[in-house]
């Protein structure tokens, strides 16, 4: 058995399992049960990001930097536990990681935060959704403002953070909304589900806006300093591989 294990690359198992689950989810969807399809698609969506991250040689400094950002995001909710529920700087930290370190690193910080914070708070069916939502927040933040200094100002970041306050909650409620939507076949019922969560998402969006308005400039400066100090991040912050060469030139010119 152990010999067999050494011979089979576990990574290859992912493909048949993914196909089986896609078929299962599709069949149960045709029977009017939409519970499985969402979680299957979310898990599949992580594969390209993880695969990209695995493919390259990583320097120790890059890994450590991402790990620190994720760990700080995880513990950052402690001082706010006594404040409003949902009012935490986690999304703010993930967004800033994407802005300063680039889309790929932003995704990684977000996804690791989702995973690791649930090591301590308790894993549940929500873990993949949180990983996905925070991962995408970091990834889109990198695409949005990493190479574009004008978008690092307060106003664009504020709008971006407010949008992610709502998007995060909507992503986490996809399972229920999908179920209702598939059953009712109307958009109004989906909207009804989403309107129930609106107060929570508004608090989350307000937290993002507050932190981005008050702390974004100083934090970006701080993180930029460490980005230079760690030095090894040229590779981590390539949002898209094809732009890597030219982006690299720009960056060294800018520094």
């Amino acid at each position: 058995m152990n010999l067999l294990r050494r011979k089979i690359n576990p990574k290859l198992l992912v493909i048949p399992i993914a196909i089986i689950y896609l078929v299962l989810a599709y069949v149960s969807l045709t029977r009017g049960n939409a519970l499985l399809i969402g979680i299957v698609l979310v898990l599949l969506s992580m594969i390209p990001f993880v695969w990209r991250f695995e493919r390259r040689q990583r320097q120790a400094r890059e890994l450590v930097l991402i790990a620190v950002m994720a760990a700080v995001a995880t513990v950052s909710r402690i001082p706010f536990a006594a404040l409003l529920p949902n009012f935490t700087p986690v999304t703010f930290i993930v967004i800033l990681s994407g802005v300063v370190f680039g889309a790929e690193a932003g995704w990684m910080v977000g996804a690791v935060t989702g995973l690791v914070s649930n090591f301590f708070l308790g894993q549940g069916p929500w873990t993949p959704w949180q990983m996905f939502a925070w991962g995408m927040a970091g990834f889109t933040a990198g695409l949005f403002a990493h190479r574009n200094p004008s978008r690092r100002r307060r106003l664009p970041l504020l709008l971006f953070g407010a949008a992610w306050g709502y998007l995060y909650g909507w992503i986490l409620n996809v399972t229920v909304a999908l179920d209702v939507g598939v059953r009712e076949q109307t958009w109004s019922s989906v909207l009804a589900v989403y309107s129930l969560g609106l107060p929570f998402e508004t608090v989350h969006a307000a937290a993002n806006v507050f932190f981005l308005v008050v702390f974004a400039p100083s934090w970006i400066k701080l993180l930029e300093r460490y980005r230079r100090k760690y030095g090894a991040l040229q590779r981590t912050d390539s949002g898209s591989a094809d732009m890597e060469g030219s982006a690299h030139g720009q960056r060294t010119a800018a520094e």
């Binding site: 576990p10 990574k11 993880v50 450590v64 620190v68 995880t74 513990v75 690791v112 690791v116 301590f120």
Partner: peptide
């Protein structure tokens, strides 16, 4: 499945109590 991402998660998890 993903040695680097697992190492990353492990490092972050190890940092949390210290932080």
């Amino acid at each position: 499945f993903s040695p680097k991402a697992a190492l990353l998660a492990m490092m972050a998890a190890g940092m949390v109590p210290r932080l």
